[in-house]
Amino acid sequence: MNIVETSGLSKTYRSGLFKRSIVHALTEVSLSVRKGEIFGLLGPNGAGKTTFVKILLSIVHPTQGEATVAGEKLGSPSIRERSGYLPENHRYPAFLTGLQTLIFFGSLNGMRGKALADRAHQLLELVGLQDWKKVKIKRYSKGMLQRLGLAQALLNDPDLLFLDEPTDGVDPVGRKEIRDLLTSLRNQDKTIFLNSHLLSEVEMISDRVAILNKGKVLKIGTIAELTSKQIEYELLLDRSLDDSIIEKLRPHLLSLNVEGKKLVIAVETNVELNTSIDILRSKGILIESMAQKRTTLEDSFIDLIQREATS
């Protein structure tokens, strides 16, 4: 079952004097998120990722299109009851401590008394802020605020978690901790919707991703579907290859590229790689180094965006 389902969702912002400045933030976005997966929405800054999440939470009204979240139509308060949200650039009342912040936002969630206090303490521990809970948040660093925001989003034990750039400003160790936390949440059957412009982050934990650019979805699929299947290797040889050897290699390879002593080949499996090495060795060529060039999501992402720009 799909927990988020949108069809033809569009948003045009009108701002400025007499609403003359127009931004098409989203154009006909149709996508679905399955229950229990980590879904990554990827795109450069200004692609419309934040707008998309805000529409699902009724913070922004769509110009066109429809959507359901957890089976409810947009605008239903029960969507917000069942969701947690970590906005990007969130700001909390600076005069509260971390604990007070959670208690306050928990009470807006309709939680009360001891149950709320227990939950707040438990979450502060979960995000590693237990030693800071009595400190005013104006003294928190960006990374600590991000952790607090994550705890805030988890207060109501949501089925669906919207995270907008969750690792923004967090150091590498913190990022790893957040990733582990998200993975463990997924294992508890929560659905996580992740907005990010950091591809490598999303790649590490997402089950499926959509690539958004200038308000349009360019591609949706698993990481494996979005990255190409070939494996590339870069070999450094002791001499440049002559044409006869190149012609011998070519039938075994998906692609081949020679630059002086450097040879870049693309193969389907390591069987073809080893065949190629055998051919080179039989001609007495020495291999000085060899490295695998993985095609990452980033490569295919940049490739997609560039193709979009030229077409």
Binding site: K54, L57, S58, I59, P77, S78, R80, E81, S83, Y85, P87, N89, H90, R91, Y92, P93, F105, L108, N109, G110, Q152
Partner: peptide
């Protein structure tokens, strides 16, 4: 204020 209003509006109130 930006950053605060989103938090309020994401609550069921």
């Amino acid at each position: 204020e930006k950053g605060t209003v989103e938090l309020y509006l994401s609550k069921p109130l």
